[in-house]
């Protein structure tokens, strides 16, 4: 849980809880930023580092669940850990269904919170990596010519060079050359990898 560049955001309208969480999270050497309202959080400087959100459910104005919905609609994917001072089961179920990492009733055990944060940060980190990879694949994909694209689709479908050649009315050698080019452009080491990449694109 070192990752010095990870950030944990805390949104809670209760100052005591905010201070306590800042200290607790700080004590395991994580960076933490606190906000007294969802609005404040939405105005924050955006960051690229792995982050997660510890969010109180009941707040005046925008509630935690409102914020969750808002973030989901705005395509701001950030793992959320809900904390709540009154154990409201239907609410917890709703929050979890909407993708929350954890729903902790206050008061909670520190390990429970820290474990959830750890998990959330891991998940966010993985998601961020996946997103960058994805963008890269997409970039490369757009570099392919129309023909290469056509051939690639057939490769991915598992067709042999011979079959592709016959289908497109080209020589098998041409297909071979194209195939090499495609693999290079896409940065794939094997057909399996290529299939995997394309699978992710769709």
């Amino acid at each position: 849980m070192k990752a010095a560049d990870s950030v944990v955001f805390v949104v809670d309208d209760d100052a005591s809880v905010r201070e306590a969480l800042a200290s607790l999270i700080g004590s395991v050497a994580l960076r933490v930023e606190c906000f007294a309202s969802p609005e404040g959080f939405l105005r924050r400087r955006k960051t690229e580092s792995p982050s997660c959100l510890v969010l109180d459910v009941r707040m005046p104005g925008l509630s935690g669940l409102d914020l969750q919905r808002k973030l989901a609609r705005g395509e701001q994917q950030i793992p959320i850990i809900f904390i709540s001072a009154h154990g409201d089961i239907p609410m917890a179920v709703g929050a979890m269904k909407a993708g929350a990492i954890e729903f902790l009733p206050k008061p909670f055990r520190d390990e429970d919170l820290l474990d959830a944060i750890r998990q959330a940060l891991d998940r966010d980190k993985a998601a961020k990596i996946r997103r960058t990879e994805m963008l890269e694949i997409r970039d490369r994909h757009t570099l392919l010519t129309a023909r290469q694209h056509q051939i690639m689709t057939l490769i991915v479908e598992g067709k042999l060079n011979k079959q592709i050649a016959a289908k497109l009315g080209l020589s098998e050698n041409t297909i071979k050359v194209h195939r090499r080019r495609i693999m290079e452009r896409m940065g794939a080491a094997s057909v399996a990898e290529l299939v995997h990449m394309i699978g992710r694109l769709n």
Binding site: D14, S16, V17, E19, A20, I83, P107, F108, R109, D110
Partner: peptide, 8 residues
């Protein structure tokens, strides 16, 4: 609320 803060 204060209890959670206290424990934390």
């Amino acid at each position: 609320q204060p209890l959670a803060a206290l424990v934390a």
